[in-house]
Every structure is written in structure tokens, then in C-alpha cells.
Amino acid sequence: MQQSANLAVLEATVKRVDEENGQLRGRMSRLEAMLRAFASTTDRWARQMHRAGIEPEPPHPLVDEYNRTGV
């Protein structure tokens, strides 16, 4: 009897964790897409500034790392 109850609790927990994981994966995917779009936009703005003879401020080290690695 106790083993059945423990199994039911475990199955409910696994189901809840799977649902949360799916939601988090969706949010992460959306965040990564937004980051790529933002990086592309700021790159375009920086190129426009260079063409206009305006030197933009250097990027934050994390931005520089993302531009180098894509991560």
C-alpha cells in the first residue's frame, strides 16, 4: 500500500517537473531568439555609426564574448 502511494507521488512529481521543464525550454528558446535579434540590431547600428564616422563605446565583455562565440 505504501509503495503504491510513493509511486503515485513520484509519478505526479515527474509529471510536474516535465511540464515545468517544457515551459522553461520554451522561455529559453524565446530568450535566445530575442538575444540573436538584439545582437543583430545592435551590430547594424554599430555599422551605421562607423559609416557616419562615429566610434561607438566598446561593448561590455559579455557582449564581446557573445559576438566571438555565439554563446
Rank of each mutant, 00 (worst) to 15 (best):
M34W: 02
D64L: 06
R27T: 05
V17A: 11
L31S: 10
D18W: 03
L62Q: 03
S4E: 15
M49Y: 13
P56K: 06
R68W: 04
G53S: 01
W45A: 11
T42Y: 06
L24K: 04
T41F: 09
I54Y: 03
M1P: 05
P59N: 08
M49E: 15
R47W: 04
P58F: 10
L10A: 15
H60T: 07
A12C: 08
P58Q: 14
E55N: 10
S40Q: 14
K15H: 10
L35G: 01
A8C: 06
A52R: 12
E55R: 14
E55H: 07
A52F: 05
R30D: 14
A39Y: 01
R16Q: 08
R16N: 08
T13V: 00
T42H: 08
Q48R: 03
E19T: 14
P58G: 07
E19S: 12
N6T: 11
A37P: 00
M49N: 03
V63W: 02
D43A: 11
P59H: 07
A12H: 07
V71Q: 11
S4V: 05
A46W: 06
M49D: 08
V71T: 14
T69Y: 00
E32R: 13
G53D: 03
A12T: 12
S4W: 05
S29P: 00
H50N: 03
N6H: 12
V17W: 03
A39S: 12
R30N: 13
A8E: 15
L10K: 07
G26W: 04
